[in-house]
Structures are given as structure tokens and as C-alpha cells.
Amino acid sequence: MTGGIRRVGVVGGGLMGAGIAEVCARAGLDTVVCEADATAARAARERVSASLERAVGRGGLEPAAAQDALARLAFTGDLEEMADRQLVIEAVVENADAKTEVFAALDKIVEDPAAVLATNTSSLPVMRLGMATARADRVVGLHFFNPVPVLPLVEVVASLHTAPGTVTAVESFVTEVLGKTVVHSRDRAGFVVNALLVPYLLAAVRMAESGFATAADIDTGMELGCAHPMGPLRLADLIGLDTVASIAESLYDEFREPLYAPPPLLHRMVEAGLLGRKTGRGFHEYGRS
């Protein structure tokens, strides 16, 4: 079946959606990115174009290959453009209502009953999104990692309704077409990676909140003491503190374990708009590009 998937749609052109679209286009796929409106669609195009330019600048991509990838991409503000897609990957904001609305709409728009509807959610139940459609057997989680063009992992998450054939098809697509590595997870909040990672990040937030150590010392300690490539608070800033808080809330709602509860400092920073790299300030400060 994977040999037949040539037309991919991505709903959401933010950091994750743009990255997913880029890797699909670089793999030779006809890729359409849908954003909320034409202005957001232009911003998504600029985001992908800038990423391709960086790849060329690093020597990881030939200029001609970057041009070819961009030529395979179309950007729109009209969800109806997903009608002929064989695989649609949702990558909108990590909000259950927003994602459910997208899946309900895609169920009516996507014409091929064999098409796969996938979500890039990092924490929400795939089952909930599948039940918003009349094709829950064709709904699956495909959780990519940021930055998508660089990190080689994708979590494949099947709900209780997802057909085994859907799982096999998307696993083959991810490994054979996109060239990434798959790990499988049950449909539980956080899946494999975030269920392990987020409590660690929250512990670092609590340590900084208590005044036990500074953000700089916490990060330096884990980088130099544990050989982590990035300290927990810098990593939280990279992910986005709003996203970390959202994942933590989903984990806490599901498991009711104190280690998953977002610390008050994290909530205050999100309320203040101090979201990390994307706003120029989180636990650390970052220069605006």
C-alpha cells in the first residue's frame, strides 16, 4: 500500500507541520499544507523555505534538491484541498477541541475511504480523534519529533479501533518512504517518549521554582554531569512551555500522578507569554531572528 501513497496533506503549518511537510516533499511526495487562512499559509511556506535553505547551508541538501522539494509543496487556507489526499497528517495546536474539529471536517472532505487520517498529537488520545470520524479504523497517531527534518523517530500509536492494516501501512510509509525509525505505543497520554520525558522536565521546573538551583546551573549540571546534549529547561524552552504545560495536563488528567502535574511557575510563565525560544524568553533569553 505504501507504494501507492504519493499525495500527502498536512493540516497546520507551524513548526511541526512545516517540518512534516518538508520531509514529505524531500521524499518525493506531492504535499499540500493547509493553514487557517492565506496569510498563515504564506508564513508556512516561508518557514519551510527557510528550513530548506538552512539544510543547503549546512551541506546536508543540494540546492537543486531543495528547489525540487519546494516545487512539490502547495500551501492553502482551504481545507477542501485535502479532498484527494491519500494520507492527511493533522498538526494543529495541541488542543482536543481544535483537533477533534479538524478530524470531523476531514472525515467529510477526504474522498478516498481507504485514506489514512493521522494525528501528530504528543499527548491526546487517538481514540477521541478517531471517534470524531466514521472511519476510526483508518485513524492513527504519527508523532514526529522537533526538529522533524533532523530527528529520526516517529511514534506510531494505534487506538482500540485502528485496523492492523492501517498500522502496517503507516509503519512502512514512515520507514521506507520517509526513512525514519518507528516505535510503537499504546494509546495512552504521552505515549513512550513524553511519558518519560515530561516528568523530568517538570522536576527541573520545580527545582528552579524552589530556588534550589538556577536555570543555568540545572542545565549545565545535566549537560556536563549526565552528557545530555541539552539541559531540561533549555529543552523545555525549545519545545515551547505552552506545549510542555499542555502535555503535562493531559498526562495528569489521565494518570492523576503528582509527578505529571504542571508546577505553578510553568502556568505563570505561559500566562505571561514567556514560552521559550519562539517568544525570545522562557527559562533563558534568546535573540530574536
Rank of each mutant, 00 (worst) to 15 (best):
G3S: 12
G3V: 10
G4N: 15
G4F: 14
I5F: 13
V10D: 04
G13P: 03
G14I: 01
L15S: 11
L15V: 14
L15W: 01
G17H: 04
C24P: 14
T31S: 00
V32C: 15
E35Q: 13
A36S: 14
T39P: 07
T39E: 15
T39Y: 10
A40L: 13
A41K: 12
A44T: 14
R45M: 12
E46T: 05
S51E: 13
S51M: 09
L52W: 10
V56Y: 05
G57A: 12
E62P: 09
A65E: 10
A66R: 08
A66W: 00
L73D: 14
E80Y: 14
E81T: 15
L87R: 03
L87C: 10
L87W: 10
V92D: 12
V92C: 04
V93A: 09
D97S: 14
L106P: 04
I109V: 15
V110S: 09
V110H: 09
P113H: 06
A115Y: 05
A118V: 07
N120K: 11
P125S: 02
P125E: 04
V126Q: 02
R128I: 05
G130T: 01
M131D: 06
A136Y: 08
D137T: 08
R138F: 00
V140D: 00
V140A: 06
F145T: 08
P147T: 08
P149W: 05
V150P: 02
L153I: 07
V154N: 06
V154T: 05
V157E: 01
S159C: 00
S159A: 03
L160Y: 08
H161V: 13
P164I: 00
G165P: 01
V167Q: 04
V167A: 01
T168P: 02
V170R: 02
V174M: 07
V174D: 00
T175H: 08
G179L: 01
K180G: 09
T181P: 00
V183L: 04
V183I: 15
S185R: 10
R188Y: 03
R188Q: 13
V192K: 05
Y200E: 02
V205C: 06
M207R: 11
G211K: 08
F212H: 10
A216Q: 15
D217K: 15
T220G: 10
G221V: 11
M222P: 02
L224P: 01
A227N: 15
A227K: 10
H228D: 08
H228P: 09
P229L: 00
P229Y: 10
M230W: 09
G231L: 06
L233P: 06
L235K: 03
D242F: 05
A245K: 06
S246N: 04
I247C: 06
A248D: 08
L251A: 00
F255H: 14
F255A: 15
R256S: 15
L259S: 09
P264Q: 10
P264I: 06
P264F: 11
L265F: 09
H267W: 14
R268M: 03
M269L: 14
M269H: 04
V270D: 01
K278V: 02
K278S: 03
H284C: 03
H284W: 00
Y286N: 07
S289T: 11
